[in-house]
Write a protein that binds this DNA or RNA. Structure first.
Lengths: 339, 339
DNA sequence: CTGTTAGCGCTTTCAC
DNA sequence: GTGAAAGCGCTAACAG
């Protein structure tokens, strides 16, 4: 059996209450007593029982983190940053993978509540904030919730998002500036924040350039490699295929790379390629792939900042924070010359 | 305040104990009563308080998972598999990132014990099992520990490892069979299981081929991209540089790719490249990179299998399990012809 | 089969 | 400043 507070109290010849206060660093304790208790506790190897404490205080020092997967570089970064920073603050993080599946997400949220997490950083599932009500209920129960990367429509939850509209606009404009006119877009479904906004950014850039929006050039699909395969094949099989592909659906990048390779296309000579959300691998592809970086590390840190604030009692601002996107030019896009 | 067992008992007009039994599905309960209680509980939206339960039963339904980072594809796979499978079994996983830092790892283990994890899957830090004693202490306290990917020297902990010696042997032999004689090896430090074993595999293959071991051809370093940069530069700057590079240090692959790109080397014409531990990106590099795959998914699943067994009361076998490595030939290695 | 009872280890009034 | 005592919500003997 582990050593309990009672053991410490006995050994230090004080009451349990005093021992508790001393260890908690309560100001209403005699300094000498406190030192003594702390010493005895250390000598005995006392460690407070987190369950007994949680049962009493209703704080678990646990926080939840849900991401869709760990293949996406943005989610890897989010998980790393959240884990590392929260641990440094004395919190442990319960990781959950929602697989972008609303039902699974619902169960996860429930379980997280069961484990009385003190807070939650979630990349919510798309589809009109299917489980937004649960999140709101958590907020109501005084459990701060920070949405990252995606938001829940219509819910006043603090959200840390990427500047997707601007990012997609900048990316499209870059391609336009290089002389491309037929620009294929591979994007997420429009029931996700990022899908919708990136599409809007693309459209805005095209329209500002006085170009028509050709629906056949726009391929929306799930965030998955397969989407890239299907979409790239569709795009590249057109009678007049696009001269540039803007892959604003990170998970599908892999699929696009595969199609490009299978078709023996030379980048950037046969096709200009622009990806979205940077990954270490993009830089060392041959050629290095240009990308609209959405600032995963910045988002992660901001999300943690917000959570920490909330944890310390600051009220939910219901506000939305945006981390600016940045175009990183590498070697996969070149000027387009018509034949 | 949340609804408690007492509320359910009252509403169902039974005692707290009966309610508890009914919900636990104890066989010693009247079927009708049980149904009734379950119904009432559901209607009230009752959820058992995990802390109260844990305080009483000393099981938290929490398991710990420690990995060095989330950049390494093997660790991503491990984290995904462990999280997903354990959650399906009603366990939550506390993720911790040890950054390959023994001191941090020590704190992590302590915290995990404080949170009374029911079990632990750990990728332990190298250096002679610095924190092996802690792990052993956990085992002693009846908390099953499964080491994955790396092991702790001299401790009787169940370990699920890759067949590193065989893998490195097979990889080296492949290069040898292609006619390469000067094969550069970039590997982990010899204070890690994988570093040591992969080096041994390389040496064995070389010796079997009747080739001398040239120490200058062997670069050992931390598992980090920088290692790849330094090592590749050292190797490729030799008076007679190797005709093939066997990068048996996954994290350094990125660095090697960078050096290759900077030097304008053509793969596989100027240099054959063989990597270790497959990543989705390797397949879609141009050219696709051949790899010795160490079976991350299989290791992860086996580790979970072992943990689940242990959780169900099976004793620590102290045994070591190995998942066979597999050579995946793609397009980055070609036959060597001397000029 | 069901109810009563005694804690699990801790925090926190409330007296002194 | 310190101690006594009352639970937090649950499970598990132990009776009945």
């Amino acid at each position: 059996m582990a050593v309990t507070l009672r053991d410490v109290a006995r050994a230090a010849d004080v009451s349990i209450a005093t021992a508790s206060r001393a260890l908690a660093g309560s100001s209403l304790t005699n300094h000498a007593t406190q030192r003594h208790v702390i010493q005895v506790a250390a000598a005995l190897g006392y460690r407070t029982n987190t369950f007994a404490r949680a049962l009493k205080t209703k704080r678990s020092r646990l926080i939840g983190l849900t991401v869709h997967n760990l293949e996406n570089a943005s989610f890897q970064v989010l998980a790393s940053v959240v884990q590392t920073r929260m641990q440094a603050l004395g919190y442990q993080v319960i990781l959950s993978i929602s697989a972008d599946n609303p039902e699974q997400e619902r169960d996860i949220f429930k379980t997280l509540v069961d484990h009385s997490v003190d807070g939650l950083i979630a990349v919510p599932n798309g589809a009109n904030g299917a489980n937004g009500a649960q999140l709101l209920a958590m907020e109501h129960a005084d459990i701060p919730v920070i949405c990252a990367v995606r938001r829940v429509e219509g819910a006043t939850l603090e959200s840390v998002l990427a500047g997707d509209l601007d990012g997609a606009y900048a990316g499209t404009k870059h391609l336009l500036d290089l002389g491309h006119r037929r620009i294929g877009l591979i994007v997420g479904m429009s029931d996700t924040t990022s899908g919708k906004e990136r599409l809007a950014g693309y459209k805005r850039a095209m329209q500002e350039a006085g170009l028509p929006i050709d629906p056949a050039l726009i391929q929306a699909g799930r965030y998955a490699p397969e989407t890239g395969v299907v979409a790239a094949n569709a795009l590249l099989s057109m009678p007049t295929p696009p001269s540039a592909l803007f892959v604003a659906n990170h998970e599908s990048s892999l699929g696009v790379l595969r199609v490009v390779s299978e078709r023996g296309l030379l980048i950037p000579d046969d096709l200009s390629l622009l990806f979205y959300e940077d990954s270490p691998w993009f830089e060392w592809q041959r050629p290095a792939i240009s990308v609209v970086d959405s600032g995963a590390a910045e988002m992660a840190n901001l999300a943690v900042d917000r959570l920490v604030q909330r944890l310390s009692g600051v009220a939910n601002s219901g506000r939305e924070y945006r981390v600016g996107s940045r175009l990183i030019q590498r070697a996969s896009c070149r000027a387009f010359e018509s034949h």
